[in-house]
């Protein structure tokens, strides 16, 4: 039975351990870049996470020890009761942290955050739509790239990438995916429709068509390129390829509730399995193939992917960008530079 001796002391300890546990969670979130547990975005605030952690712990300790000093030196709750109170506080602190971070944290604004005024030309791609960005000074047919987003609504991020590509002399077609078009096998019709549409445009050089996909869009790009010989170059940015087992690592990429939804999304897992990009990726050679990952990406399983890449033809190149996660990759200046340079060389 719980007795506590002094209810006031027990409540004081509950508050102290709750604030301290909150502080500890901020400490580990900052140290291990667990943005799903961090009240402050470490990319923007850096060391302020440590300061917040210290503040919470010190405040908790001061409230308890200064407020109840005399009671602390008298008999209080037993060890088992303190363990119970700490367990309650730690569970509460974890729940509060997960909920608060899910509410306050939007996705990081990213590295390339310029406002896009040019919304491109809306075009019909099969049953869906896309937005086509053409280079400004077209003297001759331009090479074109189809950009396939993942299933994580990063179409906006690809729009930024498309804009950059247009500035570099590429025509870029961003596919607008809706949830309904991501079903297998309907999803397989998207890229052929996009390639067919681009081939008919007079501004496009149909001999220089490439494809870039991000996340599961990377898997789709690999699958499409394996059968469509018109595609001359394939760049897969953080393709999923192998299902990653859910763990605390997902909190490096997104807040808790979003990560939980991601982990439990069976449609994503089913689509990845159906696309089977690992199997189809072997058929792309001898065409050029770029695999681009962020070193901090926790939504892909890199070890089996790198082992697979080592067995592939030399036309496949693997690039890992340090300090970049899954969602940041398409916005990161280094990744964008590597991608555009590679497209210039191979398209």
């Amino acid at each position: 039975m719980l007795y506590f001796v002094s209810v006031k002391l027990a409540l004081g300890y509950l508050l102290f351990s709750f604030l301290s546990a909150l502080g500890i969670l901020q400490l580990v979130a900052t140290r291990y870049r667990l943005r799903g547990l961090a009240f402050l975005d470490h990319a923007q605030h850096g060391a302020k996470g440590y300061a917040l952690a210290a503040l919470l712990i010190v405040c908790g300790a001061l409230l308890f020890f200064a407020g109840q000093w005399h009671a602390i030196l008298t008999p209080g709750p037993a060890g088992s009761e303190l363990a119970f109170l700490f367990g309650l506080s730690a569970t509460g602190a974890l729940a509060v942290t997960c909920i608060v971070t899910s509410i306050v944290q939007k996705r990081r604004p990213g590295f390339l955050t310029q406002a896009i005024t040019d919304q491109g030309e809306t075009v019909t791609v099969g049953r869906g739509t896309g937005r086509l960005y053409l280079p400004h000074n077209l003297n001759a047919p331009a090479p074109a790239v189809v950009l396939v987003p993942g299933l994580n609504n990063n179409e906006g991020d690809l729009t930024i990438l498309a804009h950059q590509m247009a500035e570099e002399g590429f025509a870029a077609l961003v596919i607008c995916l809706d949830r309904g078009s991501c079903l297998y096998p309907e999803v397989l019709t998207i890229v052929p429709a996009a390639i067919s549409m681009l081939s008919k445009r007079p501004e496009i050089d149909e001999q220089r068509l490439g494809i870039v996909g991000h996340g599961l869009g990377g898997d789709l790009a690999i699958r499409a390129a394996s059968t469509d010989k018109q595609i001359k170059a394939v760049a897969a940015l953080a393709p999923v390829l192998v299902e990653v087992q859910p763990s605390l690592d997902l909190l490096r990429e997104m807040p808790y509730l979003e990560a939980l939804r991601w982990a439990r999304d069976r449609s994503r897992a089913n689509l990845r399995a159906a696309l089977n990009a690992l199997e189809y990726g072997s058929r792309i050679a001898p065409r050029s193939f770029l695999l681009l990952y962020g070193a901090e990406d926790r939504l892909v399983s890199r070890t089996p992917t790198e082992a697979w890449q080592a067995q592939q033809a030399t036309s496949m190149r693997l690039e890992v960008i340090e300090g970049v996660g899954h969602f940041d990759l398409v916005k990161h200046p280094v990744a964008v530079r590597v991608l555009i340079q590679w497209l210039r060389e191979h398209l």
């Binding site: 500890i24 580990v28 291990y32 300790a61 303190l82 605390l248």
Partner: peptide, 27 residues
Amino acid sequence: QILMNDYALTTAMVLVLFALWFSGSSL
């Protein structure tokens, strides 16, 4: 007295355990 009471260092040690649960650069 701060060091010997039932709350300060024992809680600090349990907090280290709590932090340890979430710590580690790899799986």
